[in-house]
């Protein structure tokens, strides 16, 4: 069992999930409650990683983060080095690639919140932020959990983006899925079996968390 790769994978998944929850909540709320032509474009961009091959996303991110583009040069100036082939680069790639898995459950959950509740809160003098915090969020806790679990597990299982963007540097960018690939290439099936089993256990445990919680908050008025 490659514990270094396991630790790196868990760090990457936790960091990605934290960033996606902070950035995904306002984005999902805007998509679910906003209007305008820009919304369809943003929704399409958010969903794009679902339909693109991971290698395509990885390739463009590799180019974007390198010295050939203006954003890449800016990041190099800020960090002192290119984000490609580094843990920070992997984090950027994972956030973009797992974005739809975090945002779409939130959009679906927010869409279930009756407009009457948010209007009732406004009619009682509550600001949009207070309404979101005290009414919308408590009613959609299930979506928040689903969003976090899917973002985490999807990051744990990433392969194409990680390989393109991070290479395969042990201790820096080698995650469990890439370690598994290496073990199979080396015909080390016993180690590959342990690594694959670890990935199965992580994913299964996360899904059990979602399904065991489903419906448990309905008595407190939760919608999902």
């Amino acid at each position: 069992m490659d514990f270094e790769a396991l630790w790196l994978t868990l760090r990457l998944a936790a960091g990605t999930t934290a960033i996606l929850l902070v950035a995904g909540l306002p984005l999902a709320w805007w998509i679910a409650s906003g209007r305008g032509a820009g919304r369809a474009v943003v929704q399409a961009l958010v969903a794009l990683p679902l339909v693109l091959p991971p290698t395509v996303v990885g390739f463009y991110l590799l180019v974007m983060l390198g010295p050939l583009t203006a954003p890449g040069r800016l990041l190099i100036r800020l960090f002192g080095h290119s984000l490609a082939f580094s843990f920070s680069g992997l984090l950027v790639g994972s956030v973009i690639y797992s974005l739809p898995f975090a945002v779409q459950p939130l959009v679906a959950g927010f869409g279930l919140v009756d407009r009457g509740y948010t209007e009732a809160a406004a009619g009682l003098g509550a600001s949009p932020w207070r309404t979101f915090r005290t009414v919308v969020m408590p009613l959609t806790r299930g979506s928040l959990l689903t969003s976090a679990v899917l973002a985490f597990t999807h990051t744990v299982g990433e392969f194409g983006v990680v390989l393109m963007l991070g290479g395969n540097i042990p201790g820096a960018t080698q995650t469990l899925s890439i370690s598994l690939y290496d073990q199979v290439q080396d015909f080390n099936y016993a180690a590959a079996n342990r690594t694959a089993l670890a990935l199965v256990i992580i994913s299964l445990a996360a899904l059990i968390v979602i399904y065991s919680r489903r419906g448990s908050g309905l008595g407190r008025g939760e919608l999902v």
Binding site: G116, E119, A120, A122, L124, G125, A126, S127, P128, V135
Partner: peptide, 21 residues
């Protein structure tokens, strides 16, 4: 002016009590 700053309180025709409270 945004609704929450108007100093107006509304009870709508359809009673929408917050179900989580």
């Amino acid at each position: 002016m945004p609704a929450h700053r108007r100093g107006v309180r509304l009870a709508a025709q359809v009673a929408t009590l917050f179900p989580n409270m």
